[in-house]
Nucleic acid binder design. Sequence first.
DNA 1: ACCTGAACACCGTTCAAGT
DNA 2: ACCTGAACACCGTTCAAGT
Lengths: 206, 206
Amino acid sequence: MPRTALTREEVLEAAASLVKQHGPGALTMRKLAAELGTAVTSIYWHVGNRESLLDALVERTVQEMGAIRPAGRTPAQRIVSVARRLRRELRERPHLIAMVHERGLTERMFLPAQQALVHEVHAAGLRGARAAEAVRAVQFQVVGFVLVERNRERSPVQSPGEQELWDAPTAEHDPALARALARPADPEKLFTASARALVSALLGRV
Amino acid sequence: MPRTALTREEVLEAAASLVKQHGPGALTMRKLAAELGTAVTSIYWHVGNRESLLDALVERTVQEMGAIRPAGRTPAQRIVSVARRLRRELRERPHLIAMVHERGLTERMFLPAQQALVHEVHAAGLRGARAAEAVRAVQFQVVGFVLVERNRERSPVQSPGEQELWDAPTAEHDPALARALARPADPEKLFTASARALVSALLGRV
DNA sequence: ACCTGAACACCGTTCAAGT
DNA sequence: ACCTGAACACCGTTCAAGT
């Protein structure tokens, strides 16, 4: 006896829930079927197969990443604000973002942000190829930073870590530097500092 | 009848070869055993299990990434040269680097490069926390860039791609910009430009 | 149109038994 | 010390059969 009619939406919802909690590895067709109270094979009727189920989840995520509103007075400030906002949005959906990344859709997901950046770079007076380069440099920096950051979080304990490695002799007699590199990086600060440095150099002005 | 004695080194070599060619997904214990002409279970005696086999491959890769020699006259040039060299090294071992990344060992792999960067940042006159921030900013930028770049390469066809998306109206009446963003990014140029911009701003001088 | 169980071809891993 | 095959508990997917 079948339960109340299974829908594609229902399947996607349950799948998204599994992925959000434990990552895509935890999404097996059999577990999903158990969760939904159906036969494994019913899922295939609604979503084709596991791969296209994951594709559908990724598509959803791309849609959800809405437009970005710049904030600040100068174009440089507004660009940095977009960068920071992007970073936050990305960090709120770690597993799904990783899947978007794996499927090579990062670019498309970033289009609204890219358009906002174009606007600001224009306002700063850049045109043509130079403007394009500035936009792409910022975009690469944000995505790259988030990827590296996620990586660090997933593996907090390194052996040997920077901690042990940066003892006094190695650090060339700059104890303050040694201490700074021994502490874990503060990503928030590092990101803002990097973004400001990059943007200010790209625009040729702070 | 057993073949000529199987060694741990032989197992690692065959495994590395499989991974280099087709990625970690292609490394199954059964395929590896077939490649080596042994029973699947023999492999377990030598390397424990699949996970620690992959760990061993990663460890090898970390070792292989040797020290980096800076080149150039000014500290800024030498830092950019380290960044470019790092990027090249990383790109020569895509699958294995991805595995290092997944295991959170990127940091340790980068230590030799980090030390070179500290040296140059010092030569540029930075000290303490500010020097540390500069080193880390460069490091994050290089790793992040390579990750994003790899992502783009793996999925060359995007639908819709930047191509279609950046038609004239969208690009705010800057046809040169539209053309530039419609062309695929030239990573080599973009990387060098970004690295130069970042470094020059971090050091406060070109 | 939607659901089902059986079956297939794969996995990684354990273990008792061999030499 | 090293190797083996059998067995277990998992996978994703196909398919003929049901309603």
